[in-house]
Design a protein around this nucleic acid. Structure first.
Lengths: 148, 148
DNA sequence: CGCAGTCCCGACCGATATTCGGCCGCGTCC
DNA sequence: GGACGCGGCCGAATATCGGTCGGGACTGCG
């Protein structure tokens, strides 16, 4: 994990389909050396995988994206919650945060009924005491936009 | 955007570096037909780009991830805010949400001083009246994990 | 019917990925 | 010092891939 590795990570985050040859040119290595570093980082878990960013409008097609502020019950540990919430459908992200709530959970639901089910299961199965749900109306996300 | 396109998107989200030949095999097309569909979706904006998922621990290396609840000033329009906030450094995501605040902004900051600067600029340049910041302590995110 | 458009295929060729052997610098051990 | 193993890098050879071309099947339309 030297400076070169970090540079490679930055480039790969912008364009995961770049050829190893071009990658090597941009960091001053041969295609082989660049590919070796990428393979090593994949084996070591530094690189989790290569994924594709899809236009949310085309992807979800009417589904709901929600942010749920969650407060755990006193008898529920963070480990238990994190383990249980991972099993629920539509969970996109779970982050332990500062502030009056314990977690910020991001999820997708096909419709309000699915959201209702998700919230019920959060309370029943994941040890959630209180939740406050905000529905995403519009995503204005851009940076750090990957190369086209 | 038929069923085949959605199937291709799913596969690409799991492994953005798959070869067109393998992609074609998995959806029952030739490499050419599969590549054509990917190129078409790239041109149409359905595919925003290809990126690499990096282990947050190795990536940030001490940086802060924050969630900022934002309320706009009365004299600021949503369009103005979205346009201005995109220019600020470290902004990862901007979502218009329901609830007592207007937007949920996700951002990265190298240290508390950078976060201070970001919040000042939000109020000064982007028309933010009030903000409530929560710092991410730990990300317990998993699904939908891409293939290894 | 002719025609244009769309989607797909097979074949080709230049570019790329992967593997292999080899080189070099480094630290270890005797 | 000298031998050894290790990690990182390179160049060459071979397998694979990506982009392009020509062509076939199908559809809609005048």
């Amino acid at each position: 994990m030297d400076r070169l590795d970090r540079e490679i990570l930055g480039i790969l985050q912008q364009d995961a389909r770049i050829s190893y040859r071009d990658l090597g040119v941009r960091v001053g290595l041969s295609a082989n050396a660049a590919a070796d570093r990428v393979r090593r980082m994949r084996r070591d878990g530094v690189i989790r995988g290569f994924t594709t960013l899809v236009d949310p409008a085309a992807d979800s097609g009417g589904g709901l994206v929600v942010f749920i502020d969650v407060t755990l019950r006193l008898d529920t540990t963070n480990e238990e919650f994190e383990q249980q919430v991972a099993k629920l459908p539509g969970i996109t992200e779970v982050v332990h945060v500062t502030g009056e709530h314990d977690y910020l959970v991001r999820a997708r639901a096909a419709d309000p009924a699915a959201l209702d089910m998700l919230l019920r299961r959060l309370k029943r199965d994941a040890g959630v005491a209180q939740s406050s749900t905000r529905i995403a109306l519009r995503a204005a996300t851009r940076p750090p936009g990957p190369a086209s």
